[in-house]
Amino acid sequence: MAATAYYLTRLRNLFAVVMLSGVYSLFAAALYMVLDAVDVAFTEAAVGAGISTVLMLGTLSMTTDKEKVRKKPPLTALILVFMTGGVLVYGTFDMPRYGDPNAPIHQHVANRFIERSGEEVGPPNIVTSVLASYRGYDTLGETAVVFTAAVGVLIIIGRSKDRSMPNAKAVRRREEDDDITHEPSAKEKEDASS
C-alpha cells in the first residue's frame, strides 16, 4: 500500500496515477477487512475502486492525461513533509498500542452500543443501529452533504453542454495560440496579399 502511494507521487502519466489510486483503494479495503470493519471495506471497495476511478477517468478524458514536466524538484515541500512526519511520529509514542482493549476509545460510549443496542434497537449489526438510530441526525447530515455535492456538480458543469461556447475568453485565447503556432487564417492571407 505504501509502495502504491510512493509511485503515485512519482508518476507523470495521469492515467497510470488514476489506475494506481484505484489499486490503493482496493488495498485499503483489504486492510479494513483485516481490521474487522466489514461495512467500511464494503463501501471502500465499491466507492474507491469503482466510482471514483470512473469519475477521474472522465475528468482526464475532458482535460489531459499528461502532466507537465517540472524543472526542479520541490525541496522545500520535501523538508516540510519530513518535519511534519517527524513531529507526528513523536506524537505517537503516547498513543495506546494497537489492539489494546483498555484504550480510551473503548471506554466511553462504545460499550453501551455493544451491550445494549440488541435490546434498545434490535438489529444484530451494531454498525447499522448506530448509523441509523443512535446517530440518526449525523446520518441525515451526511445524506444532505451527498445531495448538496451532486447538486453542486450539476450547477458547475451540468449546463455548459447547452451553450455551444464553453467560455468566450478561453476560446479567444485558444484562437490566439493557433494563430501563433499554425498557418495564418484565410483572412490574414488576403490581408497579406493585398
Binding site: G58, M62, D65, L154
Partner: peptide, 26 residues
Amino acid sequence: TVSSAMITIFYTFSGHVNAELPFRKG
C-alpha cells in the same frame, strides 16, 4: 439519495465527453 447522486454525477461528467462513448482517450 446515494445511488441517484452517483448516477447524476456520472451522467454529468460523461455528458461532456462524448454522447456515444464515455471515454475517448482513457
